[in-house]
């Protein structure tokens, strides 16, 4: 109270606010702070940025989940319990074809995004259909590999190594399945609703998801198949 008495025009008992109580040079708007929305001075970011950003964070969390599965695989890789090892089981040709299909599917997905940006519905639907076909082809090959392994008495219950193998690869496969379901939904939505802003945002998220699955596959291919076949 005493400190405020000297201030001219002050209300008794109330101390005028200093803008920067910690003397940290953070008072004025402007300098050093970008005006871009969402980064301090500009206010909330536009919806497209917010949605994309949120989806990126989701993808990061998904990758953390895969990281846990990869860690488990790395620990259990040696746990073959006298059963078959990766070198005996993996057919790298098959895996190479799978990789090719998935990458082509991603390429088609990229084309679909371009078609979307150009607002060309036919091209979009065609590119999405191609994306679907390649993705489904990938899934079919993976399923064939799985059934083949089970038939050779190398199913997931055979050893901890195979448990981890089926889980890492199968989890990626489940993501692809979910992605295909989503893809069909997006095709139907564009068909029914046209290029509405909210649908554009959803297609953007879908394509982020689809490309992220590629990234995860690269890790699966390297860590599980290449390094697994080497040991």
């Amino acid at each position: 109270m005493s400190s405020s008495a000297a201030m001219p025009g002050a209300v008794p008992g109330v101390v005028p606010m200093r803008r920067d109580p910690n003397h940290l040079g953070h008072h004025a708007a402007g300098e050093g702070e970008t005006r871009a929305p969402g980064r301090g001075i500009g206010g909330p970011a536009p919806k497209r940025i917010v949605v994309g950003y949120g989806f990126w964070i989701f993808l990061l969390s998904d990758i953390v989940m895969f990281a846990a599965f990869f860690a488990a695989f790395a620990v259990l890789q040696g746990g073959t319990a006298g059963g078959p090892t990766g070198a005996e089981l993996f057919d790298l040709t098959n895996v190479a074809i799978e990789t090719g299909l998935l990458l082509l599917s991603s390429f088609a997905c990229g084309i679909a995004t371009l078609a979307l940006n150009a607002r060309r519905p036919l091209a979009f639907q065609a590119a999405m259909a191609v994306t679907f076909l390649f993705g489904a082809g990938f899934l079919a090959l993976e399923l064939r590999e799985f059934t083949d392994l089970v038939a050779r008495d190398a199913g997931p219950t055979r050893s901890a190594f195979l448990s981890a193998f089926f889980t890492v690869v199968g989890c990626h496969g489940l993501h692809v399945t979910a992605g295909l379901l989503w893809l069909l939904t997006m095709m139907a939505q564009v068909l029914a609703k046209g290029f509405r802003p909210d649908i554009l945002r959803r297609v953007m998220c879908f394509s982020l998801f689809w490309h992220a699955l590629d990234i995860v596959w690269v890790a699966v291919f390297t860590v599980v198949y290449l390094m697994g076949a080497a040991t």
Binding site: A72, V75, L76, G78, G79, T80, A81, G83, P156, T157, R158, S159, A160, F161, S163, A164, F166, T167
Partner: peptide, 11 residues
């Protein structure tokens, strides 16, 4: 599966 069973290589 055999992730944590302490059998068949689980840990």
């Amino acid at each position: 599966f055999h992730f944590f069973t302490d059998e068949a290589g689980g840990n």
